[in-house]
Computed example of a mutant assay.
Amino acid sequence: MELIVLGCSGSVAGPDSPASGYFVRGSGQESVLLDIGPGVLTAMQATEGIEPSECHVVFSHMHADHCLDFPSLLVWRRFHPTAAATRTHTLLGPAIAQQHLSMAGADYPDSPDDISDTFDVRVHEVGFGVFDANSWPSHTVGDFQVFAAPAVHTTEAYLTRIHDAQGKSFVYSGDTAATDTLAQFAQGADLLLCEAGWGETSEGKPTGMHMSGQEAGRAAAEAGVTTLVLTHVPPWGDKDAALRGAQREFDGEIIVAHAGMVLNF
């Protein structure tokens, strides 16, 4: 499986990275875009081998830093003179996704954009307890199996787990506060892509919003993952501090995400 970090800046786009957007490619012909925040469509155009009209889209939640480039993606898919979409792709996300995205691309407030011409919209189904691929609800998205669990955030939000046809797997935290669900959901995954928006620790930070590097490291250790990738640090944040926090809890491989990073696992 290949994971390309198109954007990893937390909360807003930064001077050296778009906001959240991750491109996933398996052994087959299908690909999935995880979130599409501000600047991500630009990064897609600049990355060799990525065709914006030829991927499915999975949303963790509908905050602007994770979905604001979607209306522009619709324009590309519908009207590009040589590279418009030639088929319908899957869009998987929260129950509020269709209404939210239809309004984001609307001409007028009372005329929501009908996106069914280019996307088949589906809603995350969640499981609970320790992850088991044989019993957990899932969606088939292209060549991938996509699973979800509830995140702890200020809006409807999900943890996402993706398996490819070769048995590789990774978990994306999206935006979430620390929760035991993350370690349970990530059990045995090859890679955990985890937000560390609060930096080294969550001490003194608002509750119910984000994780620290220390909490990300603890989740990775409890889940027994091979690799932890820290992401979603805002432009004013301290990536080195987030890394220090994670290292206190997890003795496996830890990588700090940056735009343009390519991970094969």
Rank of each mutant, 00 (worst) to 15 (best):
2 E>A: 05
5 V>G: 09
7 G>E: 08
10 G>M: 02
10 G>K: 03
11 S>W: 14
12 V>I: 11
18 P>Y: 00
25 R>C: 07
25 R>M: 09
26 G>H: 05
28 G>V: 01
31 S>M: 00
39 G>C: 07
39 G>L: 02
41 L>G: 13
41 L>H: 12
44 M>W: 12
45 Q>A: 09
48 E>L: 02
51 E>A: 14
52 P>Q: 01
53 S>R: 00
55 C>I: 00
55 C>E: 01
56 H>M: 01
57 V>C: 08
58 V>W: 03
61 H>K: 02
62 M>I: 12
65 D>H: 13
67 C>H: 08
71 P>N: 01
71 P>D: 04
78 R>A: 13
79 F>K: 03
84 A>R: 11
86 T>S: 12
86 T>M: 07
86 T>P: 14
86 T>Y: 07
88 T>R: 10
91 L>T: 04
97 A>Y: 13
98 Q>K: 10
99 Q>D: 14
100 H>F: 15
104 A>E: 12
104 A>P: 15
107 D>T: 05
110 D>Q: 10
112 P>V: 00
112 P>G: 14
113 D>R: 07
117 D>S: 15
122 R>Q: 14
123 V>M: 10
124 H>G: 09
125 E>G: 11
126 V>M: 09
128 F>S: 15
133 A>I: 05
135 S>P: 02
137 P>Q: 13
139 H>S: 12
140 T>Q: 15
142 G>Y: 04
145 Q>D: 14
149 A>E: 14
150 P>V: 00
151 A>I: 03
152 V>Y: 09
155 T>C: 15
155 T>W: 06
157 A>P: 00
160 T>I: 14
163 H>S: 04
165 A>T: 04
169 S>V: 01
172 Y>W: 06
174 G>P: 09
176 T>C: 10
177 A>N: 06
184 Q>Y: 07
186 A>P: 12
186 A>M: 02
187 Q>N: 07
188 G>H: 06
189 A>V: 08
191 L>V: 04
192 L>V: 05
192 L>Q: 04
196 A>Q: 05
206 P>W: 04
208 G>Q: 05
208 G>V: 03
210 H>F: 07
212 S>V: 05
212 S>H: 06
219 A>M: 12
220 A>H: 05
223 A>M: 01
223 A>S: 12
224 G>T: 01
224 G>F: 07
225 V>S: 03
229 V>I: 04
232 H>K: 13
233 V>F: 11
237 G>V: 00
238 D>I: 05
239 K>E: 13
241 A>G: 15
241 A>V: 02
245 G>P: 10
249 E>D: 09
249 E>V: 00
251 D>E: 08
255 I>G: 14
255 I>V: 15
256 V>Y: 12
261 M>W: 08
262 V>Y: 04
262 V>I: 11
